[in-house]
Design a protein around this nucleic acid. Structure first.
Lengths: 199, 199, 199, 199
DNA sequence: TATGAATGAGGGTTCATTCAT
DNA sequence: CATGAATGAACCCTCATTCAT
């Protein structure tokens, strides 16, 4: 890789990581481009070389973050070795919750900036840099079960919403309980929800 | 009531309803005080006669909205006539979901501006104008059941979060399904969750 | 005096004393009419019943304060019993300096709001409530001396300016020395200035 | 010098000179940033590129003005060729008074915005751009005299206050006399004050 | 006479974005 | 590619003043 290209990438990443931190801590609208470029140590004009505007940056950041989170979940959960679909789901959830607890900023950022719509989009295959077809994988695993599930789409929607909305409060605010106390409850509920979708 | 007092109340309400609509449609930070007073047809200074600043207004709006929503739910659900706690819960949920579907702006507003922390606060008894002790009522009803529930606090937290986060997507974006399609799923899930908390 | 008239006077005085304190501590332009009426415990409209505007109030306050200060100086200095004009001048100066030291707020107020022009005006006889013809008295005392003074007007101007400008720094800021250390120097200088005007 | 740097300096100076004129004529608090940038023909944002706020601008202006005034006095008075300290003092005073008479706005600005504290600070050596150690020079000249002075600090304080406070009235308001008539009186008084500090 | 709710122009300040270098 | 000075619209908020009661 040429030195110029390398340098270019460095600036791009610098803006990405700086803005991520700032959006997470101060919130999107309270973070100014000034703040971002100062932290990233690039000139103001450089910002607009890589991003159309602040909103463009945010969207790229969301997709980036969500995909990285799911990549880790897919790779580290060892879901393939689990018997039932419910167990697989719980294994994946576990990694996600752990990752979020490990990166409270990520949690804050996702909750504060995401809607199901964008989230959903970022999980779709073929969009940008996602390594896996996350939803496809889940559906495939469901199919392997003896018992069939109806409306898998809705089920995934509900589970993801439950995870993401409660995680925020639990991880960032420790309210109403701590993540460790919360985790088994989440497990149980996910299993309960999954079961309620069995035919 | 004196004419002055009456007029005063009218202005206050006008700001409240105008800002509610704007926050719901444009979002909090994209709504300027200028926008609000123009819509409310009052002078800019009048705004600051009734509210310390935009944040103060938002908080008052949240508490107000959440309480009105729950008041309706308590009053119209007829939960007292239901047998089981799960049924009561579903009855209440039904009204809430209906109300939210009837008032998409309310849904948008609550989702975009609320966190569990504020929400929780606004449900507490004794704070401001809330007619009922919502959480107290739920706990009381739980107590009447033969089967006992552990960690009712966490259970309520999870159910409320599930309702509020999924409702937003379903009502406002019709994604992944319409509210009518979604409702029975939500029922089932709430029952499932409640059951998983039975001792 | 009727009760109504009495009450009226009370409100007027209340505004006067409240604004004096506020102007002295916060400065004229940083004091709002709101501040004044709140401190004076009258309604906002009442303010405009007695004063044309904030500037009108200030002028009335200046004249009032300066005259009271000079009244005390005339009455308590015992200047009539002193031999020479210089001694009389010092006696009067003494009282003024003491008064200013006793009322730092007065000092602050006068310095921050006065110019020689207004000051001069407020010392002229016949304007409002001044008991004495201050400048007339000084000229008369000068005339009693054997040695004659030229340009008494200029002399008085210089002495008053010296007193008022240095007093502020010394009393309010204790800079460059304290009032007690400063007083003898002022005495000497006033005597020196007076002598330099002797024919 | 690059074109950019040159332009930058031009904007900065433009703000400085425009605000100086406005502060002098309308007073500090009645001058808005809007007024300043309009007169300086720069955008409002540009103002905040160079100054933290209006107060920052004022302080820079005061220090700048006072120092320029004293620089001229030091350089044009030819004080080194005078015999006695009193003569040197009068020579310097002369230049200052002439300068002030030549620049009534400067006089107005200094009187309306300065206190001994700030003034003193701006005369201290080492602060910013002052060419000379003004107070040091005066003290040094005092030391060359045969007759010694006590409390030189207080003496300088009194003389400067006398000059600045009376000059304002004389130059700006022509009250009680014109500058030309006033000058010899000021000379005499300064000499008299200086003498009264001789041991 | 006394009130205080209502006004709206104007205050200081921020900031996303542009463009000449 | 990279820069950062310059922009000016838009922001939130204050306040002297009015006027219906």
């Amino acid at each position: 890789m040429g030195k110029a290209v390398e340098n270019k990438l460095k600036k791009y990443s610098s803006i990405l990581s700086s803005s991520f931190e700032l959006f997470s801590t101060k919130g999107f609208s309270k973070t100014s481009v000034e703040d971002i470029v100062k932290k990233a140590d690039v000139a103001k004009g450089t910002f607009y070389l890589y991003f159309k505007d602040k909103f463009d940056l945010r969207e790229k950041l969301i997709i980036n973050s969500a995909q990285k989170l799911f990549d880790v979940a897919i790779e580290q959960s060892g879901y393939k070795n689990k018997e039932s679909f419910t167990d697989k789901l719980c294994a994946i959830t576990d990694v996600i919750l752990n990752e979020m607890a490990r990166q409270p900023l990520l949690t804050k950022f996702l909750r504060g900036n995401i809607s199901w719509a964008v989230f959903h989009k970022s999980l779709e295959h073929g969009r940008g840099q996602g390594k896996y077809d996350y939803i496809g994988i889940l559906k495939e695993e469901m199919g392997k079960e003896e018992a069939k599930y109806h409306d898998p789409e809705i089920m995934i929607f509900m589970i993801i919403e439950l995870i993401s909305s409660t995680s925020y409060s639990v991880i960032v605010e420790n309210d109403p309980v701590s993540p460790d106390v919360y985790k088994p409850h989440l497990h149980d509920c996910i299993a309960a929800i999954a079961n309620s979708f069995k035919e």
